[in-house]
Simulated scan of single mutants.
Amino acid sequence: MSIKTIHRACIIDDDKLYVSLIKMLINKNELAQELLVFENGKQAFDYFEEALAGNNATALPQVVLLDLNMPIMDGWEFLDALEPYANELKQSSLKLNVVSSTINPEEMNKARNHAIVNDFITKPISKEAMISAFRL
């Protein structure tokens, strides 16, 4: 089964090996034309804030893969920082997925129940989970 290639995807993760594997999966399966990569939530938030403040929703990715544990600004802080933009994000075609190796059920539920989170995906991410994350 093939899925439509999206215009822009985003990985927010500080694990260089994971990022290179995900990039390879995305490219091999032709899931996105363009890929934004941020090593921490602060870099990503600055990008998102600029796009949202400038009413430039087309600059936003359609799919985001967000890690929770990162330096500078972690995934939870990133989600909190985006909270004021929840309405704009819901109106855009953004699908924000938390991707984490946590096995803590409380963290998993907290992520799944967050207002702007589409889904929680466990690392290591399978090809099937990746393709599902990109299905709009």
Rank of each mutant, 00 (worst) to 15 (best):
L31V: 08
V98F: 01
K110L: 12
C10Q: 05
I131P: 04
F78W: 01
D80A: 13
L94Q: 08
N56L: 13
N104M: 10
K42A: 12
E34L: 07
L89W: 00
N69T: 14
I103W: 09
Q33T: 00
A129E: 07
F45T: 05
N87K: 13
E49Y: 14
L21P: 01
S100D: 09
S2F: 06
S20Y: 03
G54T: 12
N69R: 09
P71R: 01
Q62R: 12
D80R: 15
S2R: 11
L94N: 05
A59C: 11
P61I: 05
L36G: 06
K28F: 02
P71C: 03
A115V: 15
E106D: 13
L136W: 05
D15W: 02
S100A: 07
I116T: 11
I121W: 01
L79E: 08
D13K: 01
I3A: 01
G54W: 11
V19N: 14
A44N: 08
E49R: 15
A115S: 15
K28A: 11
N27M: 10
E88M: 13
M1G: 13
E107A: 12
N87H: 13
I6G: 10
N118R: 13
D14W: 00
K16T: 12
R135L: 08
L21S: 12
Y47S: 14
I3V: 12
T58F: 09
A51F: 04
A51E: 12
K127Q: 15
E34C: 03
E30H: 15
V117L: 05
L82C: 13
K16C: 09
L17I: 14
R112G: 12
E88D: 15
D13P: 00
A9I: 06
F134C: 05
D74W: 04
T58N: 13
A59R: 11
F78Q: 01
I103P: 01
N69P: 03
T102W: 02
E39W: 00
E50A: 14
V19M: 07
M70T: 06
Q91H: 07
R135N: 15
Q33G: 04
W76E: 10
K127V: 14
L68Q: 02
E50N: 15
N40V: 05
L136P: 05
M24I: 07
P71G: 07
T102G: 03
S2Q: 12
F134G: 08
L82H: 10
M130F: 02
F48V: 09
M73F: 01
A44I: 02
D119Y: 04
L89K: 00
R135M: 13
I121D: 04
T5Y: 04
A53E: 15
D67A: 08
G75R: 10
S100E: 08
G54E: 15
I121T: 00
A57V: 11
L36P: 00
K42D: 08
